[in-house]
Simulated assay, not measured.
Amino acid sequence: MAGQTETLIGAILADIDAGRLAPGQEIDEAALASHHGVSRTPIREAYIQLEATGLIRRLPRKGAVLFKPTLEEFLAIQEVHAQLEGQAAGLAARRISPDLRAELERITKDCADHASSKGDADPDGYYQLNLRFHETVALGAANPFLVEMIKTNARKLMAYYRARYRYPGAIAQSALEHREIAELILSHDRNGAEAAMRAHVQFDQVTVMDLLAALG
């Protein structure tokens, strides 16, 4: 049972990460049961665990839906997320390993190359690079508990961060900020890296309202 539950949780998280589940969308319980060959019991256990993290909400007679924030919830989550990401960048400036230093340099260059060669095209492709950048920074903090907190929190707003790269100029700006953050980390500037990362992941309220409207 535990193995089935973990498999189901992994499948739902993969759908969130890939953008196959949108905020407020109902999770297809019948499709999960059919695809994974399981009964409703492990599905409901998976729902309970995911609801405890805030990623889904179970509704009477509607099953489970992916978390869809209000404006107030979005701003509150973003505030926490900025602190977590900033802390990771600051710790990475102190702790990042040689292998992750090299990976950070590679992914930062990949982001810049994408921005210069494709401009505003292929925002989904850039978003995957963006995920790699942030994951590398988080791993550089050498704190697995912090990494998991960042992942869980990021998934609550992932669809909106993905949509942000469809705005003109957003990819180029992001790539520039990635370069700044990477340079601060690689030069061991903890305070600078932390502040730059916090600013990087935060949107102003007007942008948040636009994103909430765009995704319904």
Rank of each mutant, 00 (worst) to 15 (best):
E194D: 10
R95Y: 03
E194Y: 00
A115W: 04
E194W: 01
A182K: 06
E105S: 11
L8T: 06
M1I: 10
E177R: 14
H114Q: 10
A64T: 13
D122G: 04
A93K: 09
Q4K: 03
K68E: 14
R57I: 12
R95W: 05
L84G: 06
A195E: 15
A195C: 13
A182D: 09
L215D: 08
M1E: 06
V137Q: 00
I12N: 05
A159I: 10
G90I: 12
L32E: 00
E103Q: 13
A175F: 03
E85F: 10
L157I: 12
Q87L: 14
L211P: 10
E103G: 00
I48G: 06
D99A: 11
A138K: 06
A30I: 03
R101C: 11
D15Y: 03
Q202A: 13
Q4T: 02
N143P: 04
E6Q: 15
E6K: 11
L66E: 01
A76R: 12
R94K: 13
E135C: 07
L8N: 06
I12W: 03
H36S: 02
A195K: 15
G216A: 10
A182S: 15
Y161M: 03
A64S: 14
A89Q: 11
E85G: 14
A172I: 04
Y47K: 10
Q205N: 08
V80F: 02
G86V: 12
I43V: 12
N153G: 09
Q202V: 12
L84I: 15
E135H: 07
H35P: 01
V65G: 00
D113N: 12
L55A: 14
V208L: 11
G216P: 01
F74D: 01
V38G: 01
N191W: 05
L75P: 10
D204W: 02
D189N: 15
I107S: 05
G216W: 02
R57M: 10
V201D: 08
P123M: 03
L13T: 03
E194V: 05
D110A: 15
L157M: 05
Q78A: 01
A64V: 12
A142M: 13
G119V: 09
I181D: 08
M209L: 12
V201N: 07
L212R: 05
N143K: 07
I107A: 09
Q202E: 11
K109G: 09
G19W: 04
L186T: 12
H35G: 04
Y161P: 05
T108H: 01
L100E: 04
I16T: 02
A52Q: 14
N191H: 12
S116W: 04
R101I: 09
R179Q: 15
D204G: 07
A89W: 05
R179N: 08
E177D: 15
R166Y: 06
I12Y: 03
G216N: 10
Y47S: 13
H200E: 01
L212K: 03
D204R: 06
L100K: 02
D99E: 06
A170V: 07
Q202N: 07
R162P: 12
Q128R: 13
